[in-house]
Amino acid sequence: MNPSPSGATALARLYGEPLFELPPDLYIPPEALAVFLEAFEGPLDLLLYLIRKQHFNILDIPMAQVTRQYLSYVEQVRAHNFELAGDYLLMAALLIEIKSRLLLPPQRSSPEAEAQDPRAELVRRLLEYEQIKQAAQKIDQLPQLGRDFWLAQATAPVVGPPALPSISPSELAQAWSRLLQRAHLVQHHRIDGPRLSVRAFMSQMLRQLQRRRFAEFGELLQPEHGLAALIVSFIALLELAREGLIELTQASAYAPIYVRLGPATGLEAPDNSAHTP
């Protein structure tokens, strides 16, 4: 196959010159045209091309003339690509067989029966192939997405408040572990005192948050009051978060954790920018 300067592949040769586009209405004699079989979809496509180009009646195919032209086209590529010409040679053998049967006296199963035309099966296959090919061409002419038209797409920028990163349980556990270390450092001795109430610590935390917008996680738990108070205050913090009375926020990954009132309280914390994380 000879490529054109633009990269297209030659379909045939006309008097030795490469032909990159078949003329729609020009009849080219077989001796002047060397067809590359890659331009056809198969032997039926080549046979139908020969019949339609020369305006033969497909119901009365001149087998001798069509067979000669068919063989001349196949012979040009058989020496160079025998595997490609295999299916075409099988069709050539069928054409020769049909021509031979036409030369023999017709055989009838009974004196009243009509002799069967040897070309009937080939004509049926050609007509079916032509119908399928025309249907495929009509489908190909339909507008196709990505070839004939494109879907209009537009995206609008989403403007909204920046979403704060969520706090994972592991980060909360690490913050709690650091507070435990601080509590052990400041603990010098243990004094048994009254029992600590989780509800009391919950109420105390809510009162502290009503006076400010945010409170730092460690500042709200107050580890300097001892290990027992720290544990009870942490349980109170988790209970408030579970009931939706407080929210835990973080400005960015690995940043300090802050606590603020949740929507379930129905209270609005004062807008104190000095406590904003």
Rank of each mutant, 00 (worst) to 15 (best):
L47R: 10
L47V: 02
L48K: 08
L50F: 08
I51T: 05
R52E: 11
R52L: 10
R52V: 11
H55Q: 13
N57S: 12
I58V: 13
L59M: 14
D60W: 04
D60L: 14
I61W: 06
P62Y: 06
P62R: 05
M63P: 00
Q69D: 14
Q69W: 13
Q69P: 00
Q69T: 03
L71C: 09
L71S: 09
L71F: 03
L71N: 09
L71D: 10
S72G: 06
Y73D: 11
Q76L: 14
Q76Y: 11
V77L: 10
R78H: 11
A79K: 05
H80Q: 15
N81V: 07
F82Y: 12
F82C: 02
E83W: 14
L84Y: 10
G86I: 10
D87W: 08
D87Y: 03
D87N: 14
Y88F: 11
Y88D: 02
L90D: 09
M91D: 02
A92V: 07
A92N: 05
A92P: 04
A92H: 06
A92Y: 06
L95W: 06
L95Y: 05
I96F: 07
E97T: 01
I98R: 01
K99P: 00
R101F: 00
L103P: 00
L103T: 03
L104R: 09
P105C: 08
Q107R: 13
Q107F: 05
Q107L: 09
R108W: 02
R108N: 06
S110W: 03
P111E: 06
P111M: 05
A113R: 07
A113H: 10
E114V: 14
A115G: 10
A115I: 04
A115P: 02
A115C: 06
D117P: 02
P118S: 02
R119G: 00
A120C: 01
A120D: 08
E121P: 02
V123I: 15
V123F: 04
V123R: 02
R124Y: 11
L126H: 07
L126M: 08
L126S: 00
L127Y: 02
E128K: 13
E128W: 02
Y129Q: 04
Y129N: 10
E130P: 00
E130R: 11
E130Q: 15
Q131N: 12
K133A: 11
Q134A: 15
A135V: 13
A136T: 14
